[in-house]
């Protein structure tokens, strides 16, 4: 069942600053490993769309928001520690 669930992410980044670039890389690696063909990533650059970040209440960059499946989850940071991220996204059991 869970294998078929498609994931929808929104990643807020601050241009191509180091943290943001790292987050983008980490997220795509994660998706490649666990969510092949069942993910969608929207990248919002708050430098280019500052009003959007404000409207969405984004404090820190990078911020990853898991929109689907519910519940919504927010993870801040470069996503470099894989285990907690997977746990937060509900992907851990799948791996195990």
């Amino acid at each position: 069942m869970s294998r078929r669930v498609s994931y929808k992410f929104r990643l807020y980044v601050a241009g191509d600053t180091q943290n943001s670039a790292q987050a983008v890389a980490n997220l795509s690696a994660l998706c490649k490993a666990h969510l092949v063909d069942r993910h969608e990533i929207e990248v919002v650059d708050v430098f280019r769309q500052p009003k959007r970040g404000l409207a969405d209440g984004i404090l820190m960059t990078p911020t990853l928001v898991k929109l689907v499946p519910s519940p919504t989850r927010t993870i801040i940071g470069t996503l470099s520690q894989t285990q907690p991220v997977l746990q937060a996204l509900g992907l851990e059991t799948v791996v195990a």
Partner: peptide, 18 residues
């Protein structure tokens, strides 16, 4: 909120700037 890796306030500042 879950935190993983480092992050910064530049996003917020960009928003506030606008």
């Amino acid at each position: 909120l879950i935190q993983s890796g480092s992050f910064d306030l530049s996003g917020m500042l960009a928003a506030l700037e606008a």
